[in-house]
Structure formats: structure tokens, C-alpha cells
Simulated scan of single mutants.
Amino acid sequence: MKNYKIITLGPSGAGKTVFLASLFKKLAANQEGAFLKTFDDQQRIKLNQIYAKIIDPDQNWPSGTRDITQITFTCYVKNLDLNPQNFQVCDLTYIDYSGGLITDKSDEEDVFDFQENVPNADAVLAIIDGLKLLKLMQGENLNNETITKFLHIDLTNMMQLINQYQTDKPVNFIISKWDLLEGRYNLSQIRERLLEKVPEFENVVNFRVSAGCPVRLIPVSSIGMDFATLEPDGSMTKTGAIPKPLYLEIPIAYLLIDKVGDREKAHNHLVVSFKKHLKDFEKKFPEANLAKIPTPICLILTQAILLILVCSLVFQGWSILCLPFGIVAIVYAAKAKAPLKLGSKLGRKQASKNAKKWFLFGFIPAAIIAMIIRFS
């Protein structure tokens, strides 16, 4: 049976511990046909204790990961026949490194362990702190100590560690605490801000896109909306509401599908309901796929080429009134391809705007010429 190794990275306070405990709680429930088990009773009890502390409004949030945590789960698919024996699909070895590996001077043993494990990993989950991301999105002073640490220590160090990981292996960036960002900013805005402000993030994305490797930005809330409120001092106060986690299973679903390599074959690993979660997620967050190139520029490029052909072959003597504009539109649309691959906000918007503008400059006289020829 295949054992998939997952490495999880994230600075202290990013929410790795809460993510893992909530993920186990959700996927151990055996409610939707696919579920996880860990056969180490001590680890199972510890995860349940952490989750109990999370949902108890009278207790503080659990402390972060201080040491390397390694847990092996077995993924089962429920047998829908009368046979009570469930199907063992695969094992998942989940390795959670302490936040100190990123934010502090790391223990040599931790660094050695990471360097030993990373070449054999099947996927990396890189946790980006949603609370710090919110402050970045709100336009707080970039010289602010929290923002400076987030940009130049947390994210920079995490990207440098990811660069030690093979470029042909999937990387899923997990935005934690999505409940703080939902309704204030969309994933496209966050994606563009990260690409704009964190060159190391852009480099990681570019290298993996060039290698044809999956790289994604996945929003996750381990507790769901309204479970906690953000206080002015940046702390989170529990409200006593029932936790309703969002998208916790998505990174695991992607891991299985990436390794199978074919979405149809992935049916052997995921029950229909699990696949539906993935389909719903991709419908809501198409921009989560950092390797996906938007299509509007391609459409403008095609239209500009058709405009030139029509002007040259049909309008002939009149072509001087529309042909130059079509050429300029093609130039801008072609230049736009590189920024689109890199996810550059400025490049995409400016190129798209210019290509569309010059196309319209050529299309309008072309339409007028067509009407003159038609009715003359």
C-alpha cells in the first residue's frame, strides 16, 4: 500500500496545530465515505485533546508545535456493499515541523531531519498566516514590525526551505484563518498582493509552473465563520459558536489526485462526495491554481489577428484606417503572455487594458467601413 509523505511548514502562530487537529476530527468521522485512522492511540488521544481545547470557549488556544510531529494515518474508503470490511486506500505520513524552523535559529537536528525528509516528500503544505496576511491586505505600513517580519522573515525563510524541495513535486500554499479574510478580500486580490510583495513567492511559483508541477493557493479555515472574533490587539476571542471548518479536506484531495496523475483514476482513491468537495472548491476559487493562465488576453489576441486579416483582405484601400490599430493590439496582447504566466498584477492589467483599447480603436472604424461598403 502506497505511503504518501506530506511535509508541513509554517511560522509560529500560523495555525498548523489547529489545522492538523481539525483535519483529523473532520476526516476521522467516517461520515462521507472516506476517513482517516491513526493506530497510535497516544497520537489519536493527543489530537482529540487539542481539538477539545480548540472548541472550549473557556480555554486558551493550544500552543504551537515545539518539536517535529510525525503521524501516520491510514486513509479508508467505506465499503458500500454489505461486507463490513472497508478498503484501505493508502497511508499518509504527516510531518509537521516546528515554527522555529522558519522564524528562529533552528536546532541542527531539526534542519538535518528536514533535509533528510524533503527529497522523498510527495507534497509540501506551506501554511501562510491569515491574520498577518489580513494586515498586509489592509495596507498597513510596510515598515510595521509585524508586516516586516511577515514579509522578510516568515515568508522569505519558508520559500527558501521550499526551494530545497524538488521542483517537480506539488506545493500547496495554505492560507490559514480564512474566516478573517472571507468577505473582505477575494483570493485573486490576495494572490496578486503576494506575488507583488514577496519576490521569493513569485520565484517558487514560476519554477514550478515552468516544470509543469502543481502549485496552488488554498484558503482554509480550521474553525469556520463566527467561531472567533478578531480583537483590536490582534488576539482571537472564542464566541462559543459551533465550529464549521472550511476546505480542510482540499489539500488531501489534491495530494491523492496529483499522485494518481489522472482525475478519472482518482475515483479509486476518493469517494464521490469527496470529489464533489474538490469540484465545488475549484468552482469557487479558480484562481487557487497558481499555474493556470487566465484566458482574456488570448481572446483579444485572436480578435486582433482577425481584425488585421479582414482589414487587409476585404477592405483593401480602406485598411489604413484600422490595420495599424490591430497591429498595436497584437503587440500588447503578445507582451501580456509573460506577465500572465508570472501572475504579475501590474503586467496583466496594463497589457489587457492596452490590448483591448487598441483593438477597439481598430474595430470601430472597421465596423464603419463595413457599413459604408454594405450600403454603397
Rank of each mutant, 00 (worst) to 15 (best):
A241C: 12
K276T: 05
I252H: 05
V260G: 03
P286L: 00
M236A: 12
G224I: 05
K276I: 10
L255W: 00
F274L: 10
I242V: 11
K292Q: 15
Y247E: 12
L255K: 09
S235Y: 05
F274Y: 10
L278D: 01
K259C: 05
L255S: 12
P251L: 12
F285M: 09
Y247K: 06
D258M: 02
I293H: 12
F281W: 08
K284T: 14
K292N: 15
F281K: 06
M225D: 11
K276F: 13
L248S: 07
F281I: 05
S273Y: 06
H267R: 15
P286N: 12
L270D: 11
K275I: 10
H269N: 09
K275C: 09
A291F: 08
P286I: 11
K283E: 11
L290Q: 04
V271R: 04
K276N: 14
E287P: 00
P243V: 11
E264V: 13
K279R: 11
K292W: 02
L270M: 04
P232E: 03
V260L: 05
G224A: 02
V271Y: 01
A228V: 04
D233S: 09
F227Q: 09
D258A: 14
A266M: 07
I223D: 01
G234V: 02
A288W: 11
Y254A: 05
K275V: 06
K265G: 03
K283Y: 07
K265A: 06
F227Y: 12
D280H: 12
D258K: 00
K292S: 10
L270H: 07
F285L: 10
P243D: 11
A266S: 15
K284P: 04
E287Y: 01
F285S: 06
S222M: 09
A266H: 03
A253S: 12
N289R: 14
D280G: 08
G234E: 06
L256A: 15
G234H: 02
I257Y: 01
Y254R: 15
V260I: 11
H269V: 15
E282T: 08
V271P: 14
L256I: 15
I250W: 00
A241F: 07
N268R: 14
E249K: 03
I250M: 13
D233V: 04
I293M: 13
P245H: 10
L230H: 03
F285E: 05
E282L: 13
H269T: 10
K276W: 04
V272N: 07
V271M: 06
V272K: 15
D226C: 02
S221K: 04
G261I: 04
L248N: 02
D262C: 01
A266P: 04
A241V: 05
H267I: 10
E249L: 10
K276S: 08
T239M: 06
K238P: 13
S273C: 01
G224Q: 09
P243N: 09
I257T: 14
A291I: 00
P245K: 07
I223F: 03
Y247T: 11
K238I: 00
S221N: 03
S273D: 13
D226S: 14
E264R: 08
G224M: 02
A253E: 09
I293T: 09
I242A: 10
L230K: 03
G261M: 08
Y247D: 14
M225N: 02
E231V: 01
K283H: 12
L255M: 10
F281P: 04
I250E: 00
I293Y: 09
